[in-house]
Design a protein around this nucleic acid. Structure first.
Length: 508
DNA sequence: CGGCTTTGACCGGCGC
DNA sequence: GCGCCGGTCAAAGCCG
């Protein structure tokens, strides 16, 4: 209880009451031994928060920590030192309870403030990145950023849409013409319940991928044409997808969502028909998916997701969703020129720590739209492929692959998930390496690591569908709902078992 | 009877 | 401008 009184050495940072909001819970101890607020958003280029925001830290921790933590914090503040063996503590206890209640109420407001801070942080980072991009590519990149932000100036911040909202849900607010008919449900959908009001939440399957305007060309002159580039950009924005290749004999993989088939077409170059499904778990959910067998190997089922759910997902769905969303985050992170196209340096840097993934990132210039391909069938180095348009994304690079995911609820990927990953599938030393790269890794540890681990785990298991269910669901789904995780345990298990049951006969 | 699948028609984007 | 192609619609039929 008194441990918090003795702070670490001066200048040393420590984390207090690690919890859902631990990425904000950093104190810096000064030479005087006094903890002074030094809050950070745990992200690349983290932005400090003003001193008055210390209340965010305290309030949030109070609401999530146990009573001991509460007492510790209060001790630090000298408000009401609790003494368990003292009868007089009764009144102090009442005071503490009142204080706790007050802070819980305050927590709601602070959470909103926090969301705003995060929004502003992302906005600032986007702006910084845009400036950096401008520094490296002064010809045209910034023009697009500025034109883009001016188009959506009603949001009040200079943030490329690409990173603020990856899914189709944003279309309703963007007043963009849809490529489909105006009567489609996606046009008038309501804001997602998962949305925290910051206009930047990344949903599971949130992969509109607002990206390159000139996705089919590197022509600079074309890029300087703001009008045409915007149009092309809009087209790509709607099209970023996540494709999952899985070896299965089933009609489609069980991903935890309910789907309704609304069409089937014969696609060119593939004798197998392509089936079109839309999510029916909620009215107006814009998520669609295409299911098609691979022309070369018909035992491989290719499932392509597009759009973002406007409803909470079951655990099993969250598992796949988180993984694919993470992949999208990487896809949309910063580009780096390569002879073949574009490679995200963060992705490479992080994925290559896995022995399985020495060359996981490959670029397909044939992909008309940014597409992440999670190849769950491969046992070789190409288990995870990134496909993006051959041209650079016009808006900005996003140097922190995980940063996009920071927009998602922090419980999506978290400590336990990471440790589960580590314990289950990460090779020895990899986790240590990862932590070396990211000393405070768990809360926002690179998505690349997560996906890489998932891919490695899956590819290491010949029974890949069982691996998908058992590994990803356990890792991500087990904690995806924060406090509800424990309650979901049974559901998770059920989902997992269902998943396995559905897919088992198909997994070789 | 409601929900789902099937399937031909329709629409829009894109390349030539 | 035309044709190709991907994606979607919607009527009809099926199923529990």
């Amino acid at each position: 209880m008194d441990t918090d009184r003795d702070g670490p050495a001066a200048g040393e940072s420590r984390t207090v009451a690690v919890n859902e909001m631990d990425f904000l819970s950093v104190e810096r101890w000064t030479a005087s031994g006094k903890a002074e607020p030094d809050l950070h958003l745990n992200a690349p280029g983290s932005a400090s928060i003003k001193k008055e925001d210390l209340t965010i830290n305290i309030g949030l921790n109070l609401c999530t920590a146990n009573a001991g933590s509460v007492r510790s914090i209060m001790d630090d503040d000298g408000v009401s030192p609790a003494k368990d063996d003292d009868k007089e503590s009764k009144s102090e206890l009442a005071t503490m309870e009142a204080e706790l209640t007050r802070m819980k109420e305050e927590n709601k407001k602070l959470t909103e403030t926090l969301n705003q801070v995060r929004t502003n942080y992302n906005a600032l980072q986007m702006h910084l990145i845009a400036l950096k991009q401008h520094h490296h590519q002064p010809d045209h990149e910034d023009d697009k950023v500025e034109s883009k932000s001016s188009d959506h100036g009603h949001r009040g911040v200079l943030v490329p849409k690409q990173f603020m909202h990856l899914g189709r849900a944003g279309e309703a607010h963007d007043h963009q013409p849809s490529h489909s008919r105006s009567s489609t449900p996606s046009q008038d959908q309501t804001p997602s319940p998962l949305h925290n009001g910051t206009n930047k939440e990344i949903f599971p399957f949130d992969e509109r991928g607002e990206a390159s305007p000139d996705h089919g060309s590197c022509d600079v002159s074309k890029a300087t044409n703001s009008k045409s580039s915007e149009q092309a950009q809009d087209a790509v924005m709607r099209k970023a997808r996540v494709s999952v290749r899985a070896r299965s004999q089933a009609l489609m993989i069980a991903d935890g969502c309910q789907w309704r088939k609304y069409g089937q077409k014969m696609a060119k170059g593939n004798p197998c028909p392509r089936a079109y499904y839309r999510c029916t778990m909620a009215v107006g959910c814009p998520v669609r998916k295409q299911v098609q067998r691979c022309a070369e190997d018909r035992s491989i089922l290719i499932t392509t997701y597009e759009g973002n759910h406007n409803h909470p997902l079951p655990t099993a769905a969250m598992a796949m969703a988180s993984t694919t969303s993470a992949a999208v985050s990487m896809l949309l992170s910063g580009p780096v020129s390569s002879p073949e196209g574009l490679i995200n340096p963060n992705f490479l840097a992080r994925t290559t720590i896995l022995p399985y993934s020495s060359s996981m990132a490959t670029i397909s210039a044939s992909a008309p739209f940014p597409t992440v391909t999670l190849d769950l069938t491969a046992h070789g180095p190409n288990a995870l492929q990134l496909q993006r348009p051959p041209a650079p994304f016009p808006v900005v690079a996003y140097p922190g692959a995980a940063a996009a995911f920071l927009g998602a609820p922090p419980q999506v990927l978290h400590n336990e998930q990471y440790s589960k990953f580590s314990g289950l599938q990460m090779p020895p030393g990899v986790e240590a390496h990862a932590r070396l790269l990211h000393p405070r890794a768990p809360p926002s540890l690179s998505l690349a690591n997560t996906v890489s681990a998932a891919t490695a785990a899956i590819t290491a298991d010949p029974n890949f569908t069982a691996a998908v269910a058992a590994v990803i669901s356990q890792i991500i789904g087990g904690n995806q709902q924060g406090a509800a995780a424990s309650n979901d345990e049974e559901n998770k298990n059920n989902d997992d078992s269902n998943f396995e049951e559905k897919t088992k006969p198909t997994a070789d």
